[in-house]
Amino acid sequence: MAIIELADVHKIYTLGKTEVHAVKGVSFEIASGEFASIIGPSGSGKSTILNLIGCIDQPNSGVVRINGTATSGMSDRQLTTLRHQTLGFIFQSFNLIPVLNVYENIEFPLLLGKTSVPKGEVRDWISYLIEQVGLHDHIHHRPNELSGGQRQRVAIARALVTRPAIVLADEPTANLDSKTGQSILELMKKMNAELNTTFIFSTHDSSIVGLTDHVIRLLDGTIVEEVYQKADRDTEAMS
């Protein structure tokens, strides 16, 4: 079943007197639990599509459905609640909150919800995530006391803390060296497998798409190629 569905989506930005057609009639579906990538050069519309899926931007036309619900026409409050309940975000420049330490940064999205979870349960879950991202020795460190790779690990744990159905990662490895970037992707893949969370990440690095189940290749705001690698890998494994 498709957890994300885009149908003939257009997005136009106005920059002064110029109109930029960032996304031109894009349509695709992403199934639940997929580890998908959106690939393309700079300006191809990767981030715009992630913003549309992440409900922090709205299309000019077309339909974006998250878990079967169309996002167009929703109020800001409804979109914010949808983001909180369904989506997690990983950013290229980490975007951790500088005044909070590792534990508090990870805990932060949980505090924004209205549902009350027992404190012990929250502590166990955050400790589990910290363990998974390998930062148990840095729990009380502030972001400025961490390396780039460590910050991105915190961001991954933070994205997963609300147990979202979907995690969106906008070029999560762009600010990291290749070795650290590889380890971050492996961590994301591991969490995808363990928690069955749908991961979608954008990248301009074609060499790392081998890890993903579903590749959407963009150029100038349109899809030029869409590949389901998981099915191919499953077929190969069976034969």
Partner: peptide, 16 residues
């Protein structure tokens, strides 16, 4: 600005 955007992305309502 970026920090506010991040908090909004994670579900912080405008009023908060």
């Amino acid at each position: 600005t970026k920090e506010i955007g991040t908090m909004r992305a994670f579900g912080m309502q405008r009023g908060v």
